[in-house]
Amino acid sequence: MKPPIVRLLPQGECGIVVELGSSIDVVVNRRVVALAGAIAGELAGKIVEVVPTYRSLLVVFDPLRVSRAALARKIRALAARAGGRADRRPTPERRRVVEIPVVYGGDHGPDLEFVAGVAGLTPLEVVAIHSSCTYRVHMLGFTPGFPYLGGMSGQIAAPRLEVPRERVPSGSVGIAGEQTGIYPIESPGGWRLIGRTPLRLFDPDRQEPFLVAAGDEIRFAPIDPEEWERFQEGSR
């Protein structure tokens, strides 16, 4: 595989955007996550933070402590190394799969029937498909802890609500087009809700405030409504 093209772009005097591609692509995203990790590890103390996204990452720095040119050189060197490494599959110990228990349908997933109708499937078939895939967390954004997931089957795609709900309960699992996602906090939203997890994706008071990070993988596991409390307590 050819070495990836790396572009360094300015975002203000305190930001360098490192672009590794222009589309949503697992290989590109794997490189982004690997490079973000390398930068966070090797340049700790020199930078403020690293923000990985689908196909690019942002390095925030203080230009009065480190010059843009010096930082750019270091990033390019790391990109050349990390790029080569990320072409291979991630090593097993670095790959983290997070299982998300979900109560599908009913009050927790009021749009499950709609999604089934669009797909020409039964609700149970939708659940079976949704919980059989492995999803990659490409990035987090929109609200604290909101994972942008890749890997949903196109069979259960569904259009967004025409009028978004004012309040989507935290933990709701939704579908929008060919994307699926989880609302970590109560917020407005237009995704079709098919279920809800008792786990908290974001809890600022917890030792680990965020359940998932970019580069993780997610699997959804159907549970019965009666199991809700068990998982809720288990998450604390």
Binding site: Q11, G12, C14, G15, V17, E19, S22, S23, I24, V51, T53, Y54, R55, S56, L57, L58, V60, M139, G141, Y148
Partner: peptide, 11 residues
């Protein structure tokens, strides 16, 4: 429209 990427205050 672009593929979502990082945004800083001031962008």
């Amino acid at each position: 429209d672009i593929v979502s990427d990082p945004v800083v205050p001031g962008a």
